[in-house]
Nucleic acid binder design. Structure first.
Length: 443
RNA sequence: GUGGCUGUGGCGAAGCGGUUAACGCACCGGAUUGUGGCUCCGGCACUCGUGGGUUCAAGUCCCAUCAGCCACCCCA
């Protein structure tokens, strides 16, 4: 269909887009406060990158990738997540050559061929960060703190931090065996999916929603119990930091994230009440990924937040975002000559940093004022034929329904003074730096 | 990939087998001459998602298909 968008995609339109812009602003602001630099990678990559990076046995790779052949027969895939691409860019550009750690953030669309539902789309947007070159638990905690910082600044409440450690490749091997041993006798009682998981990735059985499977793994050993001394130490120190930072968390030994590359710390932030897809962000450590992708042994950690889900949660919690609207000046012109004058005046006002609009269509004054009203114009400059003869215009202050006459050549400076240079209504979101320390949004 | 619900003018929403398919909002115009937000009046180019079928007759029943929403799987 020519007039319908592809399934699971969205047009972000005026009225909604302001929230996105605000959200992006907060994300960039916080990212920079924490010392992250933006990185933008291609929207598609060689398919192998995701197959190897994300993991062959993951749902993402098995059934959710947007893969296509280009004209030369290469297999490419629209990125389903951001970490693999970032690792690739890191290695390709040797970004790890300098001082470590290096810290990146991105705000980017992602693609997964899923069935859409509340909070899930085929093209969705993530804000994410990746840190390379630091394995210390203090970073793990900081990264979680950063997520909560962001949610907090946005005004979200009642979030839950789910925390787990999935161990390193060593203890995972041990645990895997222990788990398989535990389920060995009951293999046939597992659901078909989990029977498949048993061999390939038994940890994923914990994710199964089937009651039967849940019961079977209920008394299974947990990964936490099987951690090697080093991982155990790391995990407890992460928790020490979190306590120090006064961040409450729920230990969830059954949380296994859907990407294969995670090691040690894994976490997820959950917001209830936004539908079945309640996870608004998640991430973890991936200490082997860089090496697996052909780079040097370099530890890493990162997370991604779903922007659609954040906005959904904000809406559900009825958070009022401090969206500012730039105030505008409307120029109402009567007659051909007046229209020219309006066009010229509009340019002058814009040069002065004021937002200005005029009616191109030569409609009635009544219609023009109506438009001005709808635009929320604070001032309407009425350029009439008679006034123009005398070189004057009428300046109408809309809210007060009062107007006065002013020489045309003084309009610019007058309005500039009256409106204050391009300042929007509540002072938020402006480029102004003149009043340093002026805090916006005191409420 | 599976299931449930839904699909009428820009938006919301009646109609549930039978004359010109309500209404609300929005939009445009008008209500004595160049003035907004209230009120009143009028207008808004006709495929009732699409394609079949049943019937003398279908927006209204049946089938298919597409799309949306929600849920499962899984995840952001």
């Amino acid at each position: 269909m020519l007039t319908t968008r592809p399934r699971g995609t969205n047009d972000l339109l005026p009225g909604e887009i302001e929230k996105w812009q605000y959200l992006e602003g907060v994300l960039r602001e916080v990212a920079e406060l924490y010392g992250y630099q933006e990185i933008r990678t291609p929207i598609f990559e060689h398919t192998e990158l995701f197959q190897r990076g994300v993991g062959e046995t993951t749902d993402i790779v098995e059934k959710e990738m947007y893969t296509f052949l280009d004209r030369s027969g290469r297999s490419l895939t629209l990125r389903p997540e951001g970490t693999a691409s970032t690792v690739r860019a890191l290695l390709e550009n040797k970004l790890h050559a300098g001082a470590l750690p290096v810290k990146f953030y991105y705000i980017a669309p992602m693609f997964r061929y899923d069935r859409p539902q509340a909070g899930r789309y085929r093209q969705f947007h993530q804000f994410g960060v990746e840190v390379f070159g630091a394995a210390e638990p203090g970073l793990d905690a900081e990264v979680i703190a950063m997520m909560l910082d962001i949610y907090g600044r946005l005004g979200l409440k009642d979030l839950r931090v789910e925390l787990n450690s999935v161990g390193c490749s060593d203890c995972r091997k041990v645990y895997r065996a222990a788990l398989q041993e535990h389920l060995k006798e009951k293999l046939l009682e597992l659901c078909p999916t989990c029977q498949g998981r048993y061999k390939k990735n038994p940890l994923r059985i914990f994710d199964c929603k089937s009651r039967q499977c849940q019961e079977l793994v209920a008394d299974a050993p947990t990964i936490t119990e099987s951690l090697c001394p080093a991982c155990r130490e790391h995990f407890s120190r992460v928790q020490e930091y979190l306590k120090e930072l006064q961040i409450p968390y729920h230990l969830n030994p059954y949380m296994v994230r859907g990407l294969d590359y995670y090691t040690r710390t894994a976490f997820e932030i959950v917001a209830e009440g936004i539908g079945a897809q309640s996870s608004i962000g998640g991430g973890g450590r991936y200490d082997n990924l860089v090496e697996e992708c052909g780079g040097p042994p370099l530890p890493g950690i990162g997370y991604a937040m779903g922007m659609e889900r954040i906005l959904l949660a904000l809406e559900k919690q009825q958070v009022k975002l401090p969206l500012s609207r730039r105030q505008t000046i409307f120029l109402a012109a009567l007659g051909k000559e007046a229209q020219k004058a309006a066009a010229v005046l509009a340019q002058e006002l814009r040069q002065r940093g004021l937002s200005a609009e005029w009616d191109y269509q030569g409609r009635s004054l009544k219609a023009q004022l109506k438009t001005a009203d709808r635009l929320g114009a604070v001032f309407t400059v009425i350029i009439g034929e008679e006034e123009l003869q005398k070189g004057t215009v009428l300046i109408r202050k809309m809210q007060e329904s009062r107007q006065e006459s002013l020489p045309l050549e003084q309009v610019g400076s007058y309005l500039e003074k009256e409106c204050g240079k391009g300042v929007s209504e509540d002072g938020a979101g402006t480029m102004e730096r003149e009043k340093t320390g002026a805090q916006d949004s005191k409420n």
